[in-house]
Amino acid sequence: MDVCVRLALWLLWGLLLHQGQSLSHSHSEKATGTSSGANSEESTAAEFCRIDKPLCHSEDEKLSFEAVRNIHKLMDDDANGDVDVEESDEFLREDLNYHDPTVKHSTFHGEDKLISVEDLWKAWKSSEVYNWTVDEVVQWLITYVELPQYEETFRKLQLSGHAMPRLAVTNTTMTGTVLKMTDRSHRQKLQLKALDTVLFGPPLLTRHNHLKDFMLVVSIVIGVGGCWFAYIQNRYSKEHMKKMMKDLEGLHRAEQSLHDLQERLHKAQEEHRTVEVEKVHLEKKLRDEINLAKQEAQRLKELREGTENERSRQKYAEEELEQVREALRKAEKELESHSSWYAPEALQKWLQLTHEVEVQYYNIKKQNAEKQLLVAKEGAEKIKKKRNTLFGTFHVAHSSSLDDVDHKILTAKQALSEVTAALRERLHRWQQIEILCGFQIVNNPGIHSLVAALNIDPSWMGSTRPNPAHFIMTDDVDDMDEEIVSPLSMQSPSLQSSVRQRLTEPQHGLGS
């Protein structure tokens, strides 16, 4: 029994001894940790006062410096006190997940390849973020970090730009207890964004957000305005092209109309020559008939004078003969009235020469109109080809070629109108001259024959008349068809009918 009691006491004593040793060891460790923490804080404070003595007594600045020092320690893998190029590049790629850190790398180092804690602190103090207000930090939280649900907490804590380094380091107390961020992804996102802002300055999105919006609005307005302008120009170009094509079609119709007119003019001239020949034959025939009538009257007179026994018949025959003579005298007077005045042959040749010289100047004017028309046609064809290209319509709308071609078409039409008026006036004037003179002027042997017949020096006439060419005029020349008939041919039928009527009546009387 005593043995059992003793054994229990030994065990209890051993447990108490072991517990005492454990408590003693724990207290010694706590004392050691407290001592090392105090030494670390003293070291940080001493270093901060050495680097930035004016701010070393500010608790907030001291906390920010400690956060900057921890960031530098995080980047300094070899713990030599300086962050070199390789260490910063590795940190950007692995910790901040930048696949192309060239720009960030140059911004961080600049011309200094080794970055110490002092360099990093001075860079942070010179950053724009260091002077941010609470509102600017909240704006950064909303737009860049995209965590607007913590806006009220940031405003309540009055977190300005000075506190940004403390957000950039992993601090459970700061993010969990103070900021009350329960979501781990939110804490990590805030820490990475803050670290990027401390090292490289304010984000471009935050700094140029309004400018970007303004430029976007301006670009949209310019784009819409450009599209509207292109649409208006395209519609104007199509309308202008439609008008130009309509004018061009009018020129083609006028060309065909003048071609038909020239054919009718040539045909009328041929008919005029035929009528002139018929007139000469008719006059000769009338003279022959008059002579035959005179001979017949003389023969009847002689027969009736030789027959004294038939006085009654003779008297009747003499009366008939007197009627025939009276008819012959009237026919002769009618014929003489139409051919009583004949212009000198020299006057006819001079008038024919005048007509040919006028035709020369008319042909020159006509050729100029043809050239203008050809230029207008070529310009229209070029515009047609340009319209078939990809940007042809837009190019035509913004060039002056369309207006130039339109002006050329209008100029050609005006020139053709002048040529039309000149042709109309010339035909009418020479027709009236032919009526008054009674001989042909338009139809003549040609300028060379006339110059030779009148003994004129050929050098006075200049160049010879160009051959009539096919040219274009407007449709108002169609009503000239009825005026192209020679006035002499219009007189011939009346002359034929009057003479024939007077010759036929006596012959019928003789026949009876």
Score class of each variant (00 low, 15 high):
72 H>R: 04
92 L>F: 13
93 R>V: 13
97 N>V: 04
84 D>P: 13
95 D>Q: 04
93 R>E: 14
95 D>M: 09
77 D>S: 03
91 F>E: 15
65 F>W: 13
73 K>Q: 06
79 A>Q: 05
63 L>D: 14
87 E>H: 11
63 L>C: 07
63 L>F: 05
97 N>Y: 00
67 A>S: 02
64 S>P: 13
79 A>W: 10
93 R>P: 15
63 L>N: 10
98 Y>D: 01
66 E>T: 12
64 S>V: 14
82 D>Y: 04
86 E>H: 09
97 N>I: 00
75 M>D: 07
90 E>T: 00
78 D>P: 15
67 A>G: 01
73 K>N: 04
84 D>A: 06
74 L>E: 05
94 E>W: 13
63 L>M: 12
68 V>H: 10
86 E>K: 04
64 S>N: 06
88 S>F: 01
95 D>S: 07
98 Y>E: 03
75 M>P: 03
92 L>E: 15
74 L>F: 01
68 V>Q: 07
85 V>D: 07
79 A>S: 00
75 M>T: 03
88 S>Y: 01
83 V>Q: 12
85 V>W: 04
86 E>D: 02
86 E>C: 06
88 S>T: 01
86 E>L: 04
98 Y>W: 01
87 E>D: 02
86 E>F: 04
77 D>E: 01
85 V>I: 11
70 N>F: 11
96 L>M: 09
66 E>N: 08
76 D>H: 03
94 E>G: 08
84 D>G: 04
70 N>K: 01
85 V>G: 02
89 D>W: 04
65 F>T: 10
89 D>C: 00
88 S>M: 02
66 E>H: 13
81 G>K: 13
71 I>D: 12
86 E>I: 09
64 S>C: 09
84 D>R: 11
82 D>T: 15
92 L>I: 14
87 E>G: 01
70 N>T: 07
97 N>E: 04
74 L>D: 08
93 R>A: 15
66 E>R: 07
78 D>R: 15
83 V>I: 05
89 D>E: 00
66 E>K: 04
98 Y>S: 00
69 R>E: 14
91 F>L: 04
89 D>N: 00
76 D>I: 15
70 N>G: 15
97 N>L: 02
93 R>N: 11
92 L>Q: 10
91 F>W: 14
63 L>P: 03
87 E>W: 10
77 D>W: 03
96 L>F: 03
89 D>V: 00
63 L>A: 10
71 I>Y: 09
71 I>A: 11
86 E>P: 14
75 M>A: 09
84 D>T: 08
98 Y>V: 02
83 V>P: 13
81 G>R: 08
88 S>H: 03
95 D>I: 04
68 V>A: 06
95 D>G: 06
73 K>V: 09
97 N>T: 00
72 H>L: 01
65 F>E: 11
63 L>E: 13
82 D>Q: 12
93 R>L: 15
68 V>F: 06
65 F>H: 11
81 G>M: 15
96 L>D: 11
67 A>E: 04
89 D>P: 07
80 N>P: 11
65 F>N: 13
68 V>S: 05
82 D>F: 12
90 E>Q: 02
93 R>Y: 10
86 E>T: 13
75 M>E: 12
93 R>G: 08
84 D>E: 06
97 N>P: 11
67 A>I: 10
98 Y>R: 04
82 D>I: 12
77 D>G: 00
87 E>P: 13
81 G>P: 13
63 L>Q: 15
65 F>C: 09
80 N>L: 07
77 D>V: 01
92 L>K: 15
95 D>E: 03
90 E>G: 00
77 D>P: 08
82 D>E: 08
98 Y>H: 00
81 G>L: 11
71 I>L: 11
82 D>W: 14
65 F>D: 13
79 A>T: 01
73 K>Y: 10
88 S>N: 01
68 V>R: 03
90 E>K: 00
80 N>C: 08
83 V>N: 09
64 S>L: 13
90 E>I: 04
91 F>I: 07
92 L>A: 15
69 R>G: 04
76 D>Q: 13
83 V>C: 08
72 H>T: 10
94 E>A: 12
88 S>C: 02
98 Y>N: 00
80 N>D: 03
80 N>H: 11
87 E>M: 10
68 V>C: 07
84 D>V: 03
96 L>I: 04
87 E>K: 01
76 D>C: 15
94 E>K: 00
79 A>I: 04
75 M>F: 09
88 S>D: 03
70 N>W: 14
67 A>Q: 05
97 N>W: 00
96 L>C: 04
64 S>I: 07
71 I>G: 10
64 S>Q: 13
68 V>M: 09
87 E>R: 07
98 Y>C: 00
72 H>I: 11
95 D>C: 11
64 S>G: 06
85 V>A: 01
95 D>F: 06
80 N>Y: 02
73 K>R: 02
97 N>C: 00
86 E>Y: 06
76 D>F: 11
74 L>I: 03
78 D>A: 10
68 V>P: 12
76 D>G: 06
98 Y>P: 02
75 M>R: 04
67 A>L: 01
80 N>W: 09
91 F>Q: 14
94 E>T: 13
74 L>T: 10
69 R>L: 03
92 L>W: 15
69 R>P: 03
81 G>D: 08
85 V>P: 07
96 L>E: 09
87 E>V: 01
70 N>Y: 03
85 V>H: 07
67 A>T: 02
76 D>N: 09
84 D>I: 09
94 E>L: 12
70 N>A: 12
74 L>K: 07
69 R>F: 11
86 E>M: 07
79 A>D: 00
80 N>Q: 11
82 D>A: 14
97 N>G: 00
73 K>M: 09
74 L>M: 02
77 D>L: 06
88 S>K: 02
65 F>V: 09
70 N>I: 01
79 A>L: 02
74 L>W: 10
66 E>S: 11
77 D>Y: 02
65 F>G: 14
96 L>Q: 11
81 G>A: 11
72 H>P: 05
71 I>N: 03
87 E>S: 02
81 G>I: 14
67 A>F: 10
94 E>C: 12
94 E>Y: 13
73 K>I: 04
94 E>I: 14
95 D>K: 05
82 D>N: 03
93 R>C: 14
77 D>T: 06
91 F>N: 12
83 V>G: 03
70 N>S: 02
75 M>V: 00
87 E>L: 02
76 D>A: 10
96 L>W: 14
96 L>G: 10
81 G>Q: 15
96 L>H: 05
71 I>E: 08
63 L>K: 10
90 E>Y: 04
96 L>P: 03
65 F>R: 13
90 E>F: 11
74 L>S: 12
77 D>I: 06
97 N>R: 01
74 L>V: 03
90 E>C: 08
97 N>S: 01
63 L>Y: 06
63 L>I: 07
71 I>W: 12
80 N>G: 06
96 L>Y: 12
89 D>T: 02
90 E>W: 04
72 H>N: 02
89 D>K: 06
81 G>H: 14
64 S>W: 12
95 D>P: 11
78 D>K: 12
73 K>H: 10
85 V>Q: 05
73 K>S: 06
83 V>T: 09
66 E>F: 10
71 I>V: 02
83 V>A: 05
98 Y>A: 02
64 S>A: 15
63 L>S: 05
97 N>H: 05
91 F>A: 15
83 V>R: 04
96 L>K: 13
73 K>W: 11
81 G>E: 15
83 V>L: 02
72 H>E: 06
77 D>F: 09
90 E>L: 02
74 L>Y: 10
73 K>L: 04
95 D>A: 00
98 Y>F: 00
84 D>Y: 05
89 D>G: 00
82 D>G: 09
86 E>A: 06
88 S>W: 01
67 A>V: 02
78 D>S: 13
